[in-house]
Every structure is written in C-alpha cells, then in structure tokens.
C-alpha cells in the first residue's frame, strides 16, 4: 500500500505521465458514452452525403458511402480499447505463467521455455501475426489470437528474471520449510513481488497491441466492414486520399494519440516503480 502511494506521488509530479493518464481516461469515457457523443450511428449511410469535407453536420467529414467519420471513430474507440485489453491480457497471462514456471523450477524446464522465447522472437511480430491471422482467416478475433500468442516473450523474460532473484530470499526458504506447496509459494509469495514490472509492460504493451492490431486491420486482416475499427477506416480512405484526405487522416491521429497516451503513462510508471531505469 505504501509502495502504491509512493508511486502515485511520483506519478503526480510527472507531467507527461499525467497527460498520458488524462488521454486514456478521456478515451475510456468516449468509449463508454459513445452513443451519446456520436452525432450519427456508425453504420448509417447517406449516399447523397458522400465525400463531404468536415462541417458542423459531419465534424470530420464523410466517407465513400456517406458515413460520418467522427461517429465511426467515436464508436471505434470501443473496439480499440477492447482489442488492446484482450491482446495484452492474452500476452500477459501466457508470459507471466511461463516466466513464473521457468524462473521457479529452473533446470530443463527453464532451458526449454527460454529456447521457446528465442524462437518466437526470431520472427518479426507483425510478420508472424500476419501468417497466423491469414491461416485463421480475417477478423478481429483472429487478429487478437494471433497477436496474443506472439507478444508474451517480454513478460516471460522479465518475470523469469524477477523470480530468479525473489526466490533466493530467506523468507521463501522459510515458507517452503513450513510445508507450503509450490503453487502457493508462486502465487501468494512470488507473484506479488513481480507485479510492478508487469504493470509497466502491460501499459506499454497496450500501445504496441493497438499499433499492431490497427496495422493488421489496415492490411485487411482485422475488422471487417462495417465494424468501425480505426485501422480499417483509415485503410478504406487510402484509395480516396487525393479526393477526401479526411477519411485516412483523422483515424490515424486517433490511433497516434491513444498510443502516445499509453506510452506516456507507461514511461511514467516505469520511472515511478523503478527509479534505477529513470533516464
């Protein structure tokens, strides 16, 4: 609890981290209140209103079938956050579990798991995710699965490293001596000690997940029409760049601001939780 307060105090002094947190809160609010904020439904098509530039009726203009870009982006924030959280959730669950096992049991289990990490990081994440998403078929669910089962290596490495140092502590030896099971030692006594780096990685991981997921959507493997995914809206605007620049421009800004938010907060959290890493 004391550590939590200290971190919060440190964060309050970091302007960029506060800005990041502010951006994230704003996007969460937009996602929650999307139906109240969006002037139109995301799928509403008004064909006579095709390719309209930004105006009071359509704040960010309309696309090739007369849909309001602003409304689609507002609803798109829901997809963006959901996709990010699910991808990071899958990555962290796999990575933390394997990292705990690897660090705690050591020996051959550790060797095998760390070789597995070496193998997975030999692939550029987006290339491997593309191949997996292509085999599974297009769609957001498959994109989340593909990115989820690839991006866990960082968590595994960091957690393993932490476990290796935590498990040498005398109190772990003492708990073992009173007969605690491995599972209990791992989850009750080791895991709480490695939570800090996991939080930092997950925050920065949200940025990476959003970037990767929107890239896959841009390439046509993610969200399928009429889902209002930012990457897909942007991709649809690609063919009309000269005629209607606003279709591709605004979703990109939304993606960038969201990613900046998570990067700012993640950097701030890292500095607050681990002052040694402060730059």
């Amino acid at each position: 609890m004391d550590q939590f307060r200290a971190v919060l105090r440190e964060l309050k002094q970091n302007k960029l981290a506060l800005l990041g947190a502010g951006i994230i809160v704003l996007i969460v609010l937009v996602a929650i209140f999307a139906p109240y904020i969006a002037p139109h439904h995301y799928a509403r098509q008004v064909l006579p209103d095709r390719f309209l530039p930004p105006s009071t009726e359509y704040p960010l203009g309309t696309d090739d079938i007369g849909r309001c870009i602003f409304s689609r982006m507002i609803y798109g924030s829901r997809l963006a956050l959901m996709v990010g959280v699910i991808i990071v959730g899958i990555q962290a669950t796999i990575g933390v579990t394997l990292g705990l096992i690897s660090g705690f049991y050591g020996r051959w289990i550790d060797s095998i798991l760390m070789r597995l990490v070496d193998i997975v990081i030999a692939f550029p994440a987006i290339v491997l995710a593309l191949a997996i998403a292509a085999t599974l078929g297009p769609g957001l669910v498959n994109v989340m699965i593909a990115l989820g089962i690839i991006g866990w290596t960082g968590y595994a490495r960091v957690v393993r490293g932490q476990v290796l140092s935590v498990k040498e502590n005398d109190y772990i030896e003492a708990i073992r001596a009173v007969g605690a099971s491995d599972i209990r030692i791992i989850f009750r006594h080791i895991l709480p000690n490695v939570v800090a780096p996991i939080i930092v990685m997950a925050t920065l991981g949200m940025a990476g997940a959003l970037l990767a997921a929107s890239a896959l959507s841009f390439l046509g493997l993610g969200a399928q029409p009429p889902e209002p995914c930012w990457g897909a809206i942007l991709a649809a605007g690609r063919g009309f760049l000269r005629r209607a620049w606003w279709i591709a421009t605004f979703p990109g800004i939304a993606i960038m601001i969201t990613i900046l938010g998570f990067n700012f907060l993640g950097d701030g959290l890292r500095d607050a939780l681990d002052p040694r890493l402060k730059t």
Partner: peptide, 21 residues
C-alpha cells in the same frame, strides 16, 4: 515519442498526401 507512437501506414499515407499530392 511521437515517432515511436505514429502508425507506419498512416505516416506513409500522410507523406504521400503532402509530398506527392
């Protein structure tokens, strides 16, 4: 930080928009 956070595909499109179009 902006450079790290900018989606590659969007940056590419914006550069086409500005420098080509």
């Amino acid at each position: 930080l902006f450079g790290v956070s900018m989606p590659v595909f969007w940056q590419g499109l914006m550069m086409i928009l500005l420098f080509s179009f």
